[in-house]
Design a protein around this nucleic acid. Structure first.
Length: 416
RNA sequence: GUGGGUGUAGCUCAGCUUGGUAGAGCGUCGGAUUGUGGUUCCGAACGUCGCGGGUUCGAAUCCCGUCACCCACCCCA
C-alpha cells in the first residue's frame, strides 16, 4: 500500500473545516490591518535560505529538502517564508510602492526533521510581514494584529512572550559576556548546555533541564546589555503594547533559532500541545535584505503561526463548534420526484443553501441518512407532494413537519 | 541523528505471561410488511494478527531480524 510520506499527512473533513475557518479569519483580520496576500514559490534557490536564514542554523545545516535540478542548480523546498517574501520585495522593488508594505501569506513549509506531536515535515504557516519601517509602533501593531486574530478564532489559554535580542552591534558584546559567565558555570550543567557554550551560547538560556535552572536564571540578561538605540526601541514597543491593553510576559531568555532576528522578538505558547508548545514565532529582521544582497534596506518585522499546532489546540478545546451542517436533505420518492428534486436542489444551491439528494433510497433509509449527515431539514417529495404542489418539510431536530409551497422554501430554510 | 513505546477488522482496543489455526465495542450494510430518522432488537460483510525468517506436530502468542507509526531529545512553527 502506498502511504503518505513520513511527516506529511492528509487533512480530512471535518478537520479541514477548522483549517478553513482559521484561514478565513486570518484573511479577514489581516485585511482590516491593511495587509494583502503575497504568494511566493514553494521552490527557491538554495542560496536564498542559506544566506537568509543563516548558514549555521539547524534549518540550513540539516533540515532542508534540497535537490539538484536537471540543469545542475540547487533548489530547496522552502523551510519558512520570510526570506522568500523579502526576496520578492527586493526583486519587484516593492520599496518603490507607497507606504509600509504589509504582506501576509499562508501555505506549506518543509523541514526534514523527525516527526512528533505538532511537528511535521510538511507543515503549514500563516504569517505576515511589515516591511519598510523601523518604527516600534509597527512592532506593536503587528503583535496586536496577532492577538486580534487569536481573539477572532476564539483561541484561549495562550501566553505572549516578549524579548529584545539586540542588534549586530550590541549582541556580540552580550554573547562575549555570556561566554565569560558560562566558562565558570558550564562544568556543572547538563551535557547539552556544555555543548551549547561552544556552538550557540544563547541557546543555553533556553535550557529546560530543571537542575540547570538556578544557573540559567543567574546568567546576565540581554536586556541589560542593549545599546541605547535598541533600548529605546524596546521601551517604545512595550509602551505601545501597554497603550493597546495587550498583556505580555517579558522573557529575557527568549531566543530565536533563525539568524536574521534582531531587536524585538516574540513568541506565543499554548498548553495542551505536548512538547511543541510554540504556536507562533516572530520578530524584527532589519538586516535581512542586505544579507540577501539588497542595496536598498528593507527593515521589517513579521511572524509566522504554526497552523497545524493552532488547529490542534483549537480542536482540543472546541472542536465540536466547527462541525458543518447540511441545510437540506431531499428524499425523492420515484422517478418524477427525483427529476423534480434535481431542479429544486439547483435553485436552492444557487442561493447558497447546502443541499443533498438521496438518489436511490427508500424514505426510511433517506431519513436515516439525513440524520447521520446532521441535516437541519429533510424534504419529502413523493407523488402526493408533486400532485398537490405542497412539499413536506421536516425539521430534523424537532421532528415537526409542515406542508410548504416550493416558492416558500428559500425563506423557510434561510441561508446556509 | 539519539532514546522509549506501539503495530490484531474502517476506527478504538482485548487476546500474547500459561502456543491449539481470531474476539468486543463503535462504524458500514441489510432486516423488524405499505411514505418517516434519532432509541431498541435481529442479522451480514470486512482480518496475509506490519513484514521476513526461526523454534514447534501446531505461532497473533516464544526467538531473531526488518519496516512503519507514535512520543520524547535536539531544534523549531
Amino acid at each position: 500500500m502506498i502511504r503518505a510520506v513520513k511527516g506529511t499527512r492528509d487533512l480530512l473533513p471535518p478537520s479541514t473545516e477548522v483549517w478553513n475557518s482559521v484561514e478565513e479569519a486570518a484573511r479577514r483580520v489581516f485585511r482590516a490591518y491593511n495587509y494583502r496576500e503575497i504568494r511566493t514559490p514553494i521552490l527557491e534557490e538554495t542560496q536564498l535560505f542559506a544566506r537568509g536564514v543563516g548558514e549555521e542554523t539547524d534549518i540550513v545545516t540539516k533540515e532542508m529538502y534540497t535537490f539538484e535540478d536537471r540543469d545542475g542548480s540547487s533548489l530547496t523546498l522552502r523551510p519558512e517564508a520570510t526570506a522568500s517574501v523579502i526576496r520578492a520585495y527586493i526583486e519587484h522593488r516593492l520599496d518603490q510602492r507607497p507606504g509600509v508594505q504589509k504582506l501576509y501569506y499562508l501555505g506549506p513549509m518543509f523541514r526534514r526533521e523527525r516527526p512528533q506531536k505538532g511537528r511535521y515535515r510538511q507543515f503549514f504557516q500563516i504569517g505576515a510581514e511589515a516591511i519598510g519601517s523601523e518604527s516600534p509602533f509597527v512592532d506593536a501593531e503587528v503583535i496586536e494584529m496577532v492577538m486580534e486574530f487569536f481573539r477572532a478564532i476564539g483561541l484561549e489559554g495562550f501566553q505572549l512572550l516578549l524579548n529584545s535580542v539586540g542588534c549586530p552591534k550590541c549582541r556580540p558584546v552580550y554573547i562575549a559576556r555570556l561566554r565569560e559567565e558560562l566558562a565558570k558555570a558550564a562544568p556543572s550543567m547538563c551535557a547539552d548546555c556544555r555543548r551549547r557554550v561552544e556552538t550557540n551560547p544563547l541557546r543555553v538560556l533556553d535550557c529546560k533541564v530543571p537542575e540547570d535552572q538556578p544557573i540559567v536564571e543567574a546568567l546576565p540578561s540581554i536586556l541589560d546589555h542593549l545599546d541605547p538605540e535598541c533600548r529605546a526601541h524596546f521601551d517604545a514597543v512595550r509602551q505601545s503594547l501597554t497603550d493597546r491593553g495587550i498583556a505580555f510576559e517579558l522573557r529575557p531568555r527568549l531566543v530565536r533559532g533563525l539568524d536574521y532576528y534582531m531587536r524585538t522578538t516574540f513568541e506565543v505558547v499554548h498548553g495542551a500541545l505536548g512538547a511543541q508548545n510554540s504556536v507562533l514565532g516572530g520578530g524584527r529582521y532589519d538586516g535581512l535584505a542586505e544579507s540577501l544582497g539588497s542595496k536598498v534596506p528593507a527593515p521589517g518585522i513579521g511572524f509566522s503561526i504554526g497552523e497545524d499546532r493552532l488547529v490542534m489546540s483549537l480542536e482540543e478545546t472546541r472542536g465540536e463548534e466547527f462541525k458543518p451542517q447540511l441545510c437540506l436533505f431531499i428524499a425523492p420518492l420515484g422517478e418524477r420526484a427525483l427529476r423534480e428534486s434535481a431542479l429544486l436542489a439547483r435553485d436552492l444551491r444557487r442561493l447558497g443553501i447546502s443541499v443533498e439528494i438521496a438518489a436511490d433510497a427508500r424514505l426510511k433509509r433517506a431519513l436515516e441518512l439525513a440524520n447521520k449527515l446532521a441535516a437541519r431539514y429533510a424534504l419529502i417529495l413523493g407523488e402526493d407532494e408533486i400532485a398537490s404542489g405542497k412539499y413536506t418539510l421536516k425539521n430534523m431536530a424537532t421532528g415537526e413537519q409542515v406542508s410548504i409551497a416550493r416558492e416558500e422554501l428559500p425563506a423557510r430554510l434561510g441561508r446556509g
